[in-house]
Computed example of a mutant assay.
Amino acid sequence: MKIRLERDVLAEAVQWAARSLPTRPSVPILAGLLVRADADGVMFSGFDYETSARISVKAEVSDEGEALISGRLLADISRSLPAKPVDITSDDTKMQLVCGSARFTLQTLPVADYPALPELPEATGAVTSAEFAQAVSQVVVAAGRDELLPVFTGVRVEIEGDTISLLATDRYRMALKELTWRPSSTNASAVALVPAKVLSDTARSMTAGEEVVLSLSAGPGGGSRGEGLIGFEGHGAGGDRQTTTRLLDGEFPKVRHIMETPPLMNVRVNTAELVAATRRVALVAERNTSLRMAVGDGSITLEAATGDQAQASEALEASIDQPGGGDAAVSVVGFNPTYLLDALGAFDTPYVNFGFTAPSKPCQLTGLAEPDGEPLTDYRHVIMLMRLPA
């Protein structure tokens, strides 16, 4: 194999393909990055039996061929090279990189031992890349991180016609985002449980092109069960990118109905002001204790303390209404400050609405374009309230 390509093209392609390689592979061969050159250019690909990534870029190819090399080492080297064209040659045992006066010789791995990458399933539809990246970032904040409960570490992707719904929960909070897309079939209908980390990394890395093509292959059990596979494909100036990952197995909890509970009290606050106040007051919040929100007449007050050592409070102007009338639904509630900041950070609207039902019941957050406008229900975030000491 003998190829030449620009340093920036090489560095971006290798880093993208190597980003999902395991740091501690179950077998050493999985730490490798497969480099394959043909008349169309060069493809860099990696696979750990769960997630695959491949990127194709243009290059001057003198001799076609393939080689398997340590992915993370190649990524480190490509980043450090001077801004000059890079010549790469390889034989059965060595790969050589020459860039200006810099020269590296690397030991190759046996290509014959490398597993075959899965093929992309048939395209299910396409979605605007920037909109998809934002939607995923809003939802993954509510996904679990405990690998002992894998079903909570996923994002449930629901496809129904021209609508995609993304839903995640870690049992203490929940996020739902709905967006329109361009399905391959007008009667498209599917459900998949996708690892949240893979989905987040993929959505962020596919923004170079205008669209992301989703390809879904359900397992024999249908939906999110069995050996299902989901693929993502994007095209941009940095090359053609493809990622696949196996779907998570297990039954996602039926939690969506929680979002349909009508609120007894709405509290509307400026988002930026609330984020800033929450960060200040939370500085004195003791570990595993709540940040209290006291609802008053036309205002809310945030309070936190660390025993007798430090206390903080801050009042903010708020608009309060009770759709059902009657007495106030809540007067003081407790939030996990981290969960509250995560939720507020996911909103891109100038105002946010807190929909309360009772002090010990979940609270639903929705965005507002104006303080007296209707809540925007395309993104909803639910937080379980913390019990306050009597």
Rank of each mutant, 00 (worst) to 15 (best):
L291N: 05
A312G: 02
Q364I: 15
P371G: 06
T108Y: 08
Y172P: 00
A143H: 15
L385R: 13
N353E: 15
M43P: 02
T180W: 07
F232K: 03
L21H: 08
E50P: 00
L33Q: 06
M259F: 07
E50S: 02
G238C: 00
Q96L: 01
F232Q: 01
R387M: 11
T163W: 08
M43F: 06
A310V: 02
S165E: 12
E273Y: 01
V295T: 09
I3N: 03
A31N: 11
T207Y: 05
V98W: 01
S185R: 15
M386R: 14
T245C: 15
S45K: 08
G239M: 01
T108N: 05
P359S: 08
L316S: 08
V332D: 01
R279C: 10
S205T: 04
L341E: 08
A310F: 09
P389F: 05
T245E: 04
T244Q: 02
T108C: 07
V140Y: 02
L302H: 05
D321L: 04
D378M: 06
L376T: 06
T349V: 05
T301S: 09
L283M: 11
M1G: 08
S56H: 03
R156I: 00
D308C: 00
L148W: 13
G228I: 05
T124A: 13
D170C: 01
L109G: 04
S189L: 07
E303T: 15
R279Y: 03
G221T: 04
K361S: 15
P389Y: 05
A188W: 06
F232N: 06
G298Y: 12
A315R: 15
A208R: 04
D348C: 14
K58R: 14
L120D: 05
V139E: 00
V213H: 00
V212I: 14
H257F: 03
